[in-house]
Design a protein around this nucleic acid. Structure first.
Length: 306
DNA sequence: AAGACGAAAGTGGTTGA
DNA sequence: TCAACAACTTTCGTCTT
């Protein structure tokens, strides 16, 4: 692969940190999230050098759920094989091919379609590979249990993706999923709940802190502001301000406060937009934060500085 | 003039009888 | 199945910068 060095578009620094798990690239100099949907071009497996290489590579392609037959399928018979066969083996060959054709059941065809759709949406949202795999696994299980009946394939795909995001702590909001898939928000939420319940998948309530890097980057806030907001979130959790509230609202409020504290003021509207909540919600959370965490003096202090 | 604030009424979803 | 309920939104008027 050509060795081009990626530079941070914001500060030109080359000190980029790639968080593979979350699929984010973060500039260590200015904190900007450069890309939050990067594709891993790296090789998954070591390449062995010539000696013994051939035999050790027998593992073949990694098994994956994002292909409908989990990457294990073998087409019976390309034309190339035909000439080499004759007589009995030729008959056997035709029987096998027919048989294989038959077991292309509705389930498999469904899976093929659904996984294509899943890939589309996942790449649109720049989701990391691990999440894509997980959601494909969830979808496959859902199909096997007949949970798709009566629901559209697309909505189940979206639900599986949403669940996988939550499990991997790379939350995307229902709005984002909805925009990417063209499925209504409530429909996604409904199938998400249904599928996770039926499959017995436990999902931890999503953590507001998981949203911070994405929001902060969209607002071009400094790393200091980010870590401050995470600190605020932790304190808020101890004060039991977070339970029962929408995590995005809390994350937005924490970000708003810490931006104030660091003299990087953003309007409530700006923060509200990137977080997908309204100003009112931010105000409510913000007020609770002030009340319970006595941040007033810190705010006063930062005001004096100017 | 723009932003921050708060009250009031409306929406969609959960829960418990 | 229905009613109560909490969180959040929308809308709008007022205050602050």
């Amino acid at each position: 692969m050509a060795d081009y060095v990626k530079k941070c578009p914001e500060c030109g620094g080359i000190n980029l940190f790639w968080n593979k798990e979350k699929g984010e690239v973060i500039c260590k100099d200015c904190g900007l999230v450069v890309e939050d949907k990067m594709i891993d071009f790296g090789q998954e497996w070591r390449e062995f050098d010539s000696e013994g290489g051939e035999s050790r590579r027998r593992a073949g392609a990694p098994m994956t759920y994002t292909q409908y037959d989990q990457g294990l399928g073998t087409e019976v018979g390309g034309k190339a094989d035909l000439g080499r066969l004759s007589g009995k083996s030729r008959n056997k060959f035709f029987r096998l091919r027919k048989w294989q054709y038959r077991i292309s059941t509705a389930i498999e065809r469904n899976l093929k379609l659904a996984l294509a759709e899943l890939k589309r949406v996942a790449s649109y949202l720049k989701l990391p590979r691990s999440v894509e795999e997980e959601s494909a696994r969830i979808y496959t299980m859902a199909v096997q249990r007949g949970l798709v009946r009566g629901r559209s394939m697309e909505s189940v795909v979206s639900g599986a993706l949403y669940a996988a995001c939550r499990r991997h702590e790379v939350p995307r909001t229902l709005d984002e999923l909805s925009e990417a898939s063209g499925i209504e928000k409530k429909e996604i939420g409904r199938t998400y709940r249904f599928v996770t319940r039926e499959l017995g998948i436990s999902i931890l309530p999503s953590n507001p802190a998981d949203y911070i890097p994405r929001f902060a980057s969209a607002l071009k806030l400094s790393p200091e502001t980010q870590s401050k907001s995470i600190e605020i979130l932790e304190r808020a959790q101890k004060a039991e301000l977070t339970s029962g509230r929408g995590p995005t609202g809390i994350a937005a409020a924490a970000l708003y406060v810490s931006a104030l504290l660091h003299g990087e003021k953003r309007t409530q509207r700006e923060v509200a937009d990137v977080a997908g909540v309204t100003e009112v919600t931010i105000r409510n959370r913000y007020k609770e934060l002030l009340d319970r965490l006595n941040l007033e003096k810190e705010i006063r202090k930062s005001k004096k500085r100017k």
